[in-house]
Computed example of a mutant assay.
Amino acid sequence: MSTTIAPPGRGATTRRPRVTDPVPERAPGAGRSRTRRWLRVLAVLVVAGVAVWFLARELPSWSVLAAAFQRVDLPLLGVAAAVETFSLWLFTRQQQVLFAGFGVRVPVAPAVGITYSRSAMSMTFPAGSVASAAFAVEQFRRFGASRSTAATVTVLSGVVSVVGLCCLYALGAIAQWALPRPWQAITVVTVALCVIVPLARRRARHTRHPKATPPLPARPLGRVATVVRARLSDVATLPGRYWAAGIGYATANWAADLACLLITCAAFGVNVSMTQIGVVYLGIQLLRQIPISPGGIGVIETSLVAGLTLLGADNATAAAATLGYRLLSCWLVIPIGLAAWLALTRLARRHPRSPVESSTTWSSSETRRGPTPTP
């Protein structure tokens, strides 16, 4: 059976095809970007609300604060600002050392930008620690780190920071015990070195090779357990010198931040001993781990003012010293971190990751004989 198509002419109409506008396809990340935008707006509103509440309820009158700021020692406050900047640089070095242990070299300038950006995110977003960690993982992948290595180092950096804070207070307790007893302290240090140094050399002679990662099982819980075991195996094969360097930089980072608080208190004339301020600082750092507000804004200020006041400082002087310390350690970091985030974003657009870099993996055993990328 054949179908005859009439030629165009009388009695026949030619239909022209309708030209319709193509339906625009929705970008895969459009919904997520809109959600992130609203989350950022919400974070800014939360920070502004907490700041207004703190200024209205906890601080003394503006005239009293202005008088306290007029009596501040500006050179000492400048020293405190330099010490806080040095503290952030020490955190940058901590990140670089841990990545070097896995064979990844991160240049200084991008590493500093990542540090300031992460600090600004953790102080601004409601879930700032999670957002800053995810941002760090994506940024460090641009320098040859695989996603698993970047995630491992990011988590390991948090562990090293906690160990560094414990080491700082352990060293403080040892110093308080050792200063009145110099000869006993020298004897204890000598005996400890005689025991630790031979053990460290013996450990360095035995090279541990990581086991091959087994294939992922079918069950989700089994996959998670296998990935966790693989990450722990990578951490266990990290050479001891990188552990020591990372913990050393973390301890120095906490010490510099505490020194910034001490110098700021001295600049505003707070008559409180160093030991008492150190105890208040430890309580603030423990309270900071509770995600009550972004970056602890409002909570840390209130706690620090209350702690210094209970230790005998004047309310206006304690409030002025608190504002000065938070200005140097938090509020000024946010605009600098925003500028660093914009610079890193522009750099990532100009120099995107190549396919080789994005799929590069590093193993700890290859680190000892030189980093060799394995696709």
Rank of each mutant, 00 (worst) to 15 (best):
L55N: 14
G248M: 02
V235M: 10
R142M: 05
P217Q: 05
R241N: 09
L45H: 10
A82V: 08
L42C: 11
M121D: 01
S233P: 07
G337Y: 01
A81R: 00
W341K: 08
W243P: 03
R15L: 15
G370C: 06
R57V: 15
R32W: 09
T345C: 12
R205N: 13
P7M: 12
G248P: 04
S233K: 07
T207A: 15
R71K: 14
R57K: 13
A252S: 13
Y325V: 02
L310D: 05
T322K: 01
L156C: 03
A48K: 03
P8W: 06
A256R: 02
T374S: 14
T35V: 15
A252H: 00
R202I: 11
S148E: 14
D234R: 04
N253R: 11
V188F: 12
V280Y: 00
Q276Y: 06
L88P: 03
I196T: 13
Q94M: 06
L165E: 01
G370T: 08
M121V: 06
F268H: 04
W62N: 12
V270T: 01
A51C: 13
W183N: 14
S161A: 14
S148M: 13
S33N: 13
E138R: 11
Q94H: 07
L323N: 02
L76V: 09
G144Y: 00
R326A: 05
P198C: 08
P180V: 04
F86M: 09
V83R: 00
H206M: 07
R202E: 10
R37Q: 13
R147T: 13
F268P: 00
A66Q: 08
R18K: 14
Y281R: 02
S354F: 07
I284A: 05
R26Q: 14
G222F: 09
D257R: 12
T372L: 14
R205S: 15
R118K: 11
H206E: 10
G128Q: 01
R16C: 09
L287T: 04
L286D: 05
G295M: 00
P371H: 10
G246S: 08
R16G: 11
A30C: 08
I263F: 00
I174D: 09
P24Y: 03
C166A: 15
A111Y: 00
H351L: 14
R231C: 14
I186C: 12
W183C: 09
E138K: 08
L327S: 06
P215F: 06
P217L: 06
S364W: 04
P8C: 12
P335R: 06
T92S: 07
T4C: 10
L344K: 01
D257E: 13
G337K: 00
C167G: 15
E58C: 05
L221H: 09
T190S: 14
P60Y: 07
